[in-house]
């Protein structure tokens, strides 16, 4: 590997860029985890209590 190739492959991040990247990575991780939980719970609700979710009147089962 030549010195030029090495330059192309390596990027030295500043402290600010490293912190920003870590911040974004944590946010993406949390968002993906939330998405998994939301889809899992909604699937249980829709297939587990499909009938119950469509009956009654008023939001949250109100009159």
């Amino acid at each position: 590997m030549t010195v030029a190739d090495k330059d192309l492959e390596l990027v030295t991040l500043t402290e600010r860029q490293r912190k920003a990247r870590r911040n974004r990575s944590v946010a993406i991780g949390v968002a993906l985890a939330a998405l998994v939980i939301v889809f899992y719970a909604a699937t249980i609700v829709r297939f587990g209590h499909h009938g119950a979710s469509l009956t009654g009147s008023g939001l949250f089962g109100g009159g």
Binding site: V38, A41, A42, V45, R46, H49, A52, S53, L54, T55, G56, S57, G58, L59, F60, G61, G62
Partner: peptide
């Protein structure tokens, strides 16, 4: 809330 029928609370939040 104004709607006259129900929705599962979790689906409402989603």
């Amino acid at each position: 809330v104004a709607a006259p029928v129900a929705i599962n609370p979790l689906l409402a939040v989603i």
